[in-house]
Deep mutational scan, measured.
Amino acid sequence: KRLSEREFDPDIHCGVIDLDTKKPCTRSLTCKTHSLTQRRAVQGRRKRFDVLLAEHKNKTR
């Protein structure tokens, strides 16, 4: 699936709103397109961004 077609989940996706499409970014939490500050500011996550990021990195090892 293309990035734009993915169902957005704030707990596994970057989530920064794309200015062109007005939709949240569906790249992983480790997205290189958006800064850490931008990704931390995303609302609606179950846990703090840093906790989710650490969990994500542990899963992908």
Results as ranks from 00 to 15, higher is better:
residue 2 R to G: 14
residue 2 R to F: 15
residue 2 R to T: 14
residue 2 R to H: 13
residue 3 L to F: 08
residue 3 L to V: 11
residue 4 S to N: 08
residue 4 S to M: 10
residue 4 S to E: 15
residue 4 S to Q: 14
residue 5 E to M: 11
residue 5 E to W: 07
residue 5 E to V: 12
residue 5 E to R: 06
residue 5 E to D: 10
residue 6 R to W: 11
residue 6 R to E: 13
residue 6 R to C: 07
residue 6 R to P: 15
residue 6 R to M: 14
residue 6 R to K: 14
residue 7 E to H: 11
residue 7 E to G: 13
residue 7 E to P: 10
residue 7 E to L: 09
residue 7 E to T: 11
residue 8 F to R: 02
residue 8 F to K: 01
residue 9 D to A: 05
residue 9 D to I: 09
residue 9 D to K: 07
residue 9 D to E: 08
residue 10 P to S: 11
residue 10 P to Y: 08
residue 10 P to D: 01
residue 10 P to R: 05
residue 10 P to C: 06
residue 10 P to H: 02
residue 10 P to Q: 05
residue 11 D to A: 06
residue 11 D to P: 01
residue 11 D to G: 04
residue 11 D to E: 13
residue 11 D to Q: 14
residue 11 D to R: 04
residue 11 D to S: 13
residue 12 I to E: 09
residue 12 I to T: 14
residue 12 I to G: 05
residue 12 I to K: 11
residue 12 I to W: 10
residue 13 H to I: 04
residue 13 H to K: 02
residue 13 H to D: 05
residue 13 H to V: 04
residue 13 H to T: 03
residue 13 H to P: 00
residue 13 H to F: 05
residue 14 C to T: 00
residue 14 C to N: 00
residue 14 C to R: 01
residue 14 C to W: 00
residue 15 G to H: 03
residue 15 G to Y: 03
residue 15 G to K: 00
residue 15 G to S: 06
residue 15 G to N: 02
residue 16 V to P: 00
residue 16 V to L: 01
residue 16 V to E: 01
residue 16 V to K: 01
residue 17 I to N: 07
residue 17 I to H: 10
residue 17 I to T: 14
residue 18 D to E: 12
residue 18 D to R: 10
residue 18 D to L: 10
residue 19 L to I: 09
residue 19 L to H: 09
residue 19 L to N: 12
residue 19 L to Y: 08
residue 19 L to V: 09
residue 20 D to K: 06
residue 20 D to P: 07
residue 20 D to Y: 07
residue 20 D to A: 12
residue 20 D to F: 06
residue 20 D to Q: 09
residue 20 D to G: 11
residue 21 T to D: 09
residue 21 T to P: 09
residue 21 T to H: 13
residue 22 K to W: 07
residue 22 K to I: 10
residue 22 K to C: 10
residue 22 K to P: 07
residue 22 K to Q: 07
residue 23 K to V: 09
residue 23 K to F: 12
residue 23 K to Q: 11
residue 23 K to R: 13
residue 23 K to P: 04
residue 23 K to C: 13
residue 23 K to E: 07
residue 23 K to L: 11
residue 24 P to D: 01
residue 24 P to L: 05
residue 24 P to T: 05
residue 24 P to F: 08
residue 25 C to D: 01
residue 25 C to L: 00
residue 25 C to P: 01
residue 25 C to M: 01
residue 26 T to I: 14
residue 26 T to R: 10
residue 26 T to Y: 07
residue 26 T to F: 07
residue 26 T to H: 06
residue 27 R to L: 13
residue 27 R to V: 07
residue 27 R to Q: 15
residue 27 R to T: 08
residue 27 R to H: 11
residue 28 S to G: 12
residue 28 S to T: 09
residue 28 S to I: 07
residue 28 S to A: 11
residue 28 S to Y: 08
residue 28 S to M: 09
residue 29 L to C: 02
residue 29 L to K: 02
residue 29 L to N: 01
residue 29 L to M: 05
residue 30 T to H: 05
residue 30 T to A: 09
residue 30 T to E: 13
residue 31 C to R: 00
residue 31 C to Q: 02
residue 31 C to P: 00
residue 31 C to E: 00
residue 31 C to L: 00
residue 31 C to F: 00
residue 31 C to T: 00
residue 32 K to A: 10
residue 32 K to V: 10
residue 33 T to H: 10
residue 33 T to S: 13
residue 34 H to W: 00
residue 34 H to C: 02
residue 34 H to P: 00
residue 34 H to Y: 00
residue 34 H to K: 00
residue 34 H to N: 01
residue 34 H to I: 00
residue 35 S to K: 05
residue 35 S to T: 09
residue 35 S to W: 01
residue 35 S to M: 04
residue 35 S to A: 05
residue 36 L to Q: 05
residue 36 L to N: 05
residue 36 L to D: 12
residue 37 T to A: 14
residue 37 T to P: 11
residue 37 T to D: 14
residue 38 Q to S: 10
residue 38 Q to P: 01
residue 38 Q to F: 04
residue 38 Q to C: 08
residue 38 Q to R: 05
residue 39 R to T: 01
residue 39 R to K: 13
residue 39 R to S: 01
residue 39 R to M: 06
residue 39 R to W: 01
residue 39 R to A: 02
residue 39 R to V: 02
residue 39 R to P: 01
residue 40 R to V: 08
residue 40 R to D: 04
residue 40 R to W: 06
residue 40 R to T: 05
residue 40 R to P: 01
residue 40 R to F: 05
residue 41 A to L: 11
residue 41 A to N: 04
residue 41 A to R: 12
residue 41 A to W: 04
residue 41 A to T: 08
residue 42 V to P: 01
residue 42 V to A: 02
residue 42 V to C: 02
residue 42 V to Y: 02
residue 42 V to D: 02
residue 43 Q to N: 10
residue 43 Q to T: 14
residue 43 Q to R: 08
residue 43 Q to F: 05
residue 43 Q to A: 14
residue 43 Q to P: 08
residue 43 Q to D: 08
residue 43 Q to H: 04
residue 44 G to L: 03
residue 44 G to E: 04
residue 44 G to V: 03
residue 45 R to L: 01
residue 45 R to M: 01
residue 45 R to T: 03
residue 45 R to S: 06
residue 45 R to D: 02
residue 45 R to A: 02
residue 46 R to D: 05
residue 46 R to M: 11
residue 46 R to G: 12
residue 46 R to N: 08
residue 46 R to Y: 10
residue 46 R to C: 10
residue 46 R to E: 12
residue 47 K to Q: 14
residue 47 K to L: 11
residue 47 K to A: 13
residue 47 K to W: 04
residue 47 K to C: 10
residue 48 R to A: 15
residue 48 R to C: 12
residue 49 F to S: 03
residue 49 F to H: 03
residue 49 F to A: 03
residue 49 F to V: 06
residue 49 F to R: 02
residue 49 F to W: 04
residue 49 F to C: 04
residue 50 D to Y: 02
residue 50 D to K: 01
residue 50 D to R: 01
residue 50 D to T: 04
residue 51 V to M: 12
residue 52 L to V: 04
residue 52 L to A: 07
residue 52 L to C: 05
residue 52 L to R: 02
residue 52 L to K: 03
residue 52 L to I: 01
residue 53 L to D: 03
residue 53 L to E: 05
residue 53 L to G: 02
residue 53 L to A: 04
residue 53 L to W: 05
residue 53 L to K: 02
residue 53 L to V: 07
residue 54 A to C: 09
residue 54 A to M: 12
residue 54 A to F: 11
residue 54 A to L: 09
residue 54 A to T: 12
residue 54 A to R: 11
residue 55 E to I: 04
residue 55 E to L: 04
residue 55 E to Y: 11
residue 56 H to E: 14
residue 56 H to Y: 10
residue 56 H to T: 09
residue 56 H to C: 08
residue 56 H to K: 11
residue 56 H to R: 09
residue 57 K to N: 10
residue 57 K to R: 14
residue 57 K to L: 15
residue 57 K to P: 04
residue 58 N to S: 15
residue 58 N to P: 10
residue 58 N to D: 11
residue 58 N to G: 14
residue 59 K to C: 15
residue 59 K to Y: 05
residue 59 K to Q: 13
residue 60 T to I: 07
residue 60 T to K: 04
residue 61 R to E: 15
residue 61 R to M: 15
residue 61 R to S: 15
residue 61 R to D: 14
residue 61 R to K: 14
residue 61 R to Y: 10
